[in-house]
């Protein structure tokens, strides 16, 4: 923490000693003031809260969808070999397309205001969730499974009572990667859809550049970094508590 503060001071020092123009690199103080200004004034379609809200809404929709589809499908693919062998080649192929490259198609399909970003987030977060869940189920202790079989567990009991709990740590690790990927993709998608949407933190980053206001760009980047780090921290805590329970 002290180190973080020190670096912010260094930034401040460099800006004031070399008299860096604020359009190029503003001081931390100017950025902080700008964030407060954004909270009180409209830019694009509204104030900071609106942009924040839209970003979170898009992110959560895409991420939840990825989770809602990725976890069950991963369980299925981990558990039933034919499902795995039918679907994996498809995902292996799609994996080579960087999620952000879906942004234009996604704009075409779902429009600039909400769907396009949510879809890109989904595309980014889905593969790690799916793959990790599948791995987690597949690597479930064979002894555990035979023990349950011996006790008379059927296929579905096996999946939900043994497979899912045993895979939980891997699933959560997948969610963490998916979260980071999704957050990254959100910003990219918002910047690409930016002028069409007029909302979102990514839009703020873009609008700062277009109006030669580095304060807005950097302020929005800071917020993006802080929110991303907090989300990751929350899942880290979850991961730790699951690991302790297991």
């Amino acid at each position: 923490m002290a180190g973080v503060a020190a670096w912010i001071l260094v930034w401040w020092g460099v800006v004031s000693v070399f008299k860096v123009p604020p359009e190029f690199l503003p001081s931390p103080w100017q950025v902080a003031k700008k964030i407060l200004w954004l909270a009180a004034n409209d830019i694009g379609e509204g104030k900071l809260w609106l942009h924040l809200g839209w970003s979170l809404l898009r992110f959560l929709s895409g991420f939840m969808l990825a989770m809602a589809l990725g976890v069950p499908l991963g369980l299925l693919m981990g558990h039933f070999r034919p499902a795995r062998e039918m679907l994996n080649p498809l995902f292996e192929m799609l994996r080579n397309v960087p999620p952000i490259a879906w942004a234009p198609f996604s704009l075409l399909w779902f429009g600039a205001s909400f769907g396009s970003q949510a879809f890109v987030i989904f595309v980014a977060a889905f593969p790690p969730i799916l793959m990790n869940t599948q791995q987690g189920v597949r690597l479930t202790d064979k002894g555990l499974i035979s023990a349950a079989r011996m006790l008379g567990a059927g296929s579905f009991t096996l999946l939900f009572e043994i497979g899912l709990p045993a895979a939980a740590p891997a699933v959560i690790a997948g969610l963490r990667i998916g979260l980071a990927n999704g957050w990254l993709a959100l910003v990219g998608a918002e910047i690409i859809a930016g002028p069409g949407a007029l909302t979102g933190l990514g839009f703020l980053v873009l609008v700062g550049q277009q109006n030669l206001q580095a304060t807005i760009t950097i302020g929005a980047m800071a917020l993006i970094g802080i929110i991303g780090a907090s989300l990751d921290y929350a899942l880290c805590r979850l991961e730790a508590s699951v690991a302790r329970g297991a």
């Binding site: 912010i8 910047i191 970094g225």
Partner: peptide, 19 residues
Amino acid sequence: LVAILRPIPPPAWIPLAIL
């Protein structure tokens, strides 16, 4: 410094880099 910069997703740098 790494801790400050790492959480910022690369695409967020695009506008700043252009600037």
